[in-house]
Design a protein around this nucleic acid. Structure first.
Lengths: 378, 378
DNA sequence: TCCTGACTTGTAAACGTTTCCGGGGAGTCT
DNA sequence: AGACTCCCCGGAAACGTTTACAAGTCAGGA
């Protein structure tokens, strides 16, 4: 009952007022000491002691209200169980933490509600910036992004005129790499196990697949195309359905989860991989290396995309007036045992991830930097 | 140049002052309308219109400073790439979102620095509560938890006297389930591929393994024990080392990632699973079902633990004065093809997850509810 | 007609921090 | 010795909300 009111927080916790009163200094001095700027030796000692005695821990919310920053960055992904997002997240986290910030991840389940809702709640200043990789992009997404008070970077395809920072890959070209590879290995009846066609990646893979077949003069057989969702179980079941009605000699799967499911279906029916059916996945996640035989997979540079997206975000946080940027990461094909009958990858050990430099893995023949290539479009 | 200063935020964004001024009402009225409480029809109309015109979006930080809550809950896990955390996270998320809150996930990489740092930053009011599942628990952790201004629930083993809400399982008993199963199947030379012994789960599995062997009168052969970390590659390499120096007829792996790695090593050396070597993993993640053959695995109830932890957290947020609680989730064994030569699981299809009710999967013979059992200790 | 109650509104005080600014003391250079 | 610089300190004003409180309006009942 010294002053008009107790110097503690509503829930009884000490505030900077508590510390200041106990140390016998002003809150300004206390704050300065606690932030390590200025203060005489005596003041520093008293404030430090007082803080320790009362167990002071600063209220980050109040600090953020004042400083207008939180030091947090959010990543919103559809399905945190998909290893492709794990790889992306690791790359993002490396960049984000090296800037002294922390990364928070939110799984949206791919629902529009949840995603826009997240923007509305989180984006409103709880975090300094946000990276999202939605599986579907609607006008609601774009509206929410444009109106957002904090910078947002989108990983994935976006309408051309959207004024939003964007990192993408060309998954149609990625599909073409896989088809080229399978055709070159003598496969003619190539099947596709895809995800939903109303998603951005699903639509791109479907279009890319048809175009790639056409470029080789191979007619499209609809019985060789099956659609599920991007999960393991759906891939397994869709592959089983496909085998029940057609006889592919190769199978391209829209991601590695589907590919592992298809592999499971194949092995269950005692088909040999790759002798009877060659198998190629997409995303080149660690799952592709865990499978036996190891899966060939189209790398869509998820780590590189994540890293670049994080860099774009940090740049925009530093300078919000930058014009919207759009960057591309080139796909590449990683050949492993599941699609090569003879020697898996020339000179490669089972643990080597990168495609052999002499292989037909890069259309333009450009050498790939060890860390993934990033191309900037004008 | 109306009043003393522009009514907008520092970065030029509209605030409630902007809206109020434009609508010609006080900020109190504006705030009330925006929160949907009170206001005459005319006021509501004016404020809504003004808010829409200027594109007002409330500053959640300021709101939280006032209301003392953020509506966010955090989950800190060591390795987000491990599917066991994915399952746990999904269960937590279901509970958290049903309470109208949002879940944020942070991957700590298992580093003490990062974990305590997270507590220091996040916990200081950015989120209303936090669930953490540290792989190592140090005094620094405990200190940080105790001093934390927000409720923290720990999933995993904790010192007995720690005054912290805690959900745990008995992984020693889980190991015993697996060993019992393998011994009953006639295996005698059982190997263990473990994670680091200075982690909580690593130490528990090691102790449980030795105790379980002893209970069967089987001497411990140190050459049958190998240690790596809890990752796929480490499991693969550790298993290969183990096979190079000993001839196990069964292998227990400390988690499913290690088990898949071991499976890979076995298949590479053309050993048959389960005929030559029976394989049992732990955690019963979706990875166990993806492998071929499907892996038997000890379920440590990660989903049930996550769900219970979330419930405990919400209860404590509602009433911070509750005494510290400690709950247990019983382990169970899910038998699949990797450890049974004849019929994999009696009557089971490849997609059936639950152990058959007649099997020796529960020590006490109690029936398990479909969703996992939670027992409360006094 | 006057009083009471319901409803609406505006003023101002929080929430807990950082920081601008001015005053005062000690030290240094001329 | 006086002026100037430098450092330390405290008061007070932010940051953008919500909300307690008081004052005002209006209708209805005695």
């Amino acid at each position: 009952m010294g002053r008009k009111r107790l110097q503690t927080s509503a829930d009884g916790r000490p505030t900077v007022h508590t510390v200041a009163a106990r140390a016998g200094v002003s809150i300004a001095s206390a704050s300065r000491v606690l932030n390590g700027i200025g203060g005489s030796a005596e003041t520093v000692r008293k404030v430090r002691a007082a803080a320790a005695e009362v167990g002071y821990v600063p209220n980050a919310i109040a600090r953020s209200l004042q400083s207008q920053r939180t030091g947090l960055v959010a990543l919103a992904v559809a399905d945190i169980g998909n290893p492709v997002y794990v790889a992306m997240m690791r790359a993002i986290e490396a960049v984000v933490t090296s800037s002294g910030r922390q990364l928070l991840v939110h799984a949206t389940g791919g629902e529009i509600e949840s995603e826009t809702d997240l923007l509305r709640r989180l984006a409103n200043r709880y975090v300094d910036g946000m990276i999202m990789s939605p599986i579907r992009i609607t006008d609601r997404h774009l509206d929410a992004i444009v109106v957002s008070p904090i910078p947002v970077v989108v990983v994935g395809q976006l309408p051309d005129d959207a004024p939003v920072d964007n990192v993408r890959t060309d998954s149609r070209a990625g599909v073409a790499l896989a088809v080229d590879h399978l055709v070159a290995a003598g496969r003619q009846r190539i099947g596709l196990v895809n995800g939903p066609l109303d998603t951005v990646p699903g639509a791109a893979r479907d279009a890319g697949f048809r175009a790639a077949l056409a470029s080789h003069g191979i007619p499209v057989d609809e019985r060789l195309i099956e659609v599920g969702d991007f999960q393991y179980a759906a891939g397994r079941d869709a592959a089983a359905r496909l085998f029940a009605r057609a006889e592919p000699d190769a199978l391209l799967c829209a991601n590695d989860l589907i590919a592992v499911g298809a592999l499971h279906a194949l092995l269950t029916e005692r088909r040999r991989v790759p002798e009877d059916v060659a198998l190629v996945g997409m995303d080149d996640t660690e799952l592709a290396q865990m499978a036996f035989p190891q899966l060939s997979s189209v790398s869509l540079g998820s780590a590189a995309r994540g890293r670049r997206a994080a860099e774009l975000l940090l740049e925009r946080i530093a300078d919000p007036d930058l014009p919207p940027r759009r960057e591309h990461v080139a796909p590449s094909l990683v050949v492993r045992a599941s699609s090569t009958v003879g020697r898996p990858t020339p000179g490669g050990t089972p643990s080597s991830r990168r495609p052999s430099s002499g292989g037909a893995t890069r259309p333009g023949g450009r050498a790939a930097p060890a860390d993934g290539t990033v191309g900037v479009t004008s």
